[in-house]
Nucleic acid binder design. Structure first.
Lengths: 233, 233
DNA sequence: TAAATAAATGAACGTTCATTTATTTAACTG
DNA sequence: CAGTTAAATAAATGAACGTTCATTTATTTA
């Protein structure tokens, strides 16, 4: 993705300069991309046609191609947008959490269940591209890379936790795969349930997962204590 | 799906009866379905055309429609085949395992990683239909139902294990979601890696997951003991 | 106000697809 | 060996698709 650069001074002396057009252009550009995400979520990839996207965006069919050159490029742009937003949120969460693995894991869960990152449309888009990933390398590279990065982050943090907390009976990879899979399962639920998905409950389940494995680090909070039993040791 | 029943004795007195034709018919029928699975795995759903399936099966385009009435019906038949085989294997494993939750969980993992159930093509088909499930109720009903059944089985068994083993600090749903997600992650790997996927290693990871949570029930075997540490309590 | 440029339109084109129809091939019956 | 039926083919049909392009509309520059 390339930033659009304003080459000349804008808004000079109250007279509208070229910038006004560019803003319109950008707005249409973004509107088409948004419409694409909605269309993929509702009609899946095979049901996404340029005409449907155009209708959803409120522009002509020609405008869609004018802005994105081809349908394929439009689809990749939509995937890139979803992937990039998730990637940014993931990095930001990790940098904010600092070096504490407990805070970092909590932050990653938070990101994964953040309504802005994992809203139903975006999850559906992600799932749609995974479904075609086997056949289209261009999709697999994107979804696979991001999934691997997330998985690696989790494994590293769990490994830290195992070492510093003395949980030598645990296998870091197995624990991380379980957590990642648990969160993927929540995404699947989001996709099916839509806006009615209970994110608080999902949080509690993820917390309960970690609390079961790392009782000292992830003590049950009031919110997740609806089923609390005695402490283990 | 309905089983095709041979009504009359075949190969009577060396003279080929009508059954010969029926067998040919059945063979073509199955060949087209097999070809469909391969085609979906290689070209995804949107890239699966009747012509491609016909070419893969070595029959004419008309024959495909003749046998399955429509492309949509063909796709659903392919999904049903994959789903049904998994369902049968799952039930069989559970009934063989009897009432012991440890044996049952082991058996379910075994099924999930069974090369016949989760061969790369079938996993790719499963993923392809999940990708379209959001848009097509007909697919969601099938993939969703099966996933739920599997999830419920796991949760019930884990719950038993928690109660009988005194693991009251664990949340059955969280543990089961983690296990199911872990196995789903392995399926994703199967899809990407194909035949080179290391199933023994996958077994070890799944065992390690359960061993970390239920150390008394899932003792590390020689095969999975590459990373064995001290016992927890 | 006029000229120039950018953005957007919508009809038309060529292609691909699933399905239908007509025809040929093969198998079984008496 | 005819006669009949089922199975498979190949060609034809029509709808839907992505893309192109000549034209119109809107905006900026002079």
């Amino acid at each position: 993705m390339q930033a659009v650069i304003n080459q000349d001074g804008t808004e000079r002396r109250g007279r509208r300069s070229r910038a006004g057009t560019q803003r319109n252009h950008e707005r249409t550009h973004a509107a088409i991309l948004d419409a694409t995400i909605r269309t993929i979520a509702r009609h899946s990839l095979s049901g996404t046609t340029v005409q449907r996207v155009a209708a959803e965006a409120g522009v002509s069919v020609g405008a869609v191609i004018l802005h994105y050159k081809s349908k394929e490029a439009l689809l990749v742009a939509a995937l890139d947008l979803v992937a990039e937003d998730f990637e940014i949120a993931r990095r930001e969460a990790l940098s904010k959490a600092g070096s504490d693995p407990v805070a970092a894991l909590t932050a990653l869960i938070e990101v994964s269940l953040n309504p802005q990152v994992s809203n139903p449309d975006r999850v559906a888009v992600w799932s749609a591209f995974w479904g075609e990933a086997q056949a289209r390398r261009v999709y697999l590279d994107r979804v696979g890379t991001l999934d691997n990065a997330y998985q690696n982050d989790l494994t590293g943090l769990v490994q830290q936790l195992i070492e510093t907390g003395g949980y030598r009976h645990l296998d870091a990879e197995a624990v991380a795969l379980g957590l990642a899979g648990l969160l993927d399962g929540q995404w699947q639920d989001i996709m099916v349930s839509g806006e009615t998905f209970d994110r608080q409950r999902a949080h509690r389940v993820a917390q309960a997962y970690l609390a079961g494995l790392f009782p000292n680090e992830f003590a049950l909070t009031a919110a997740s204590a609806s089923f609390a039993g005695d402490k283990h040791d």
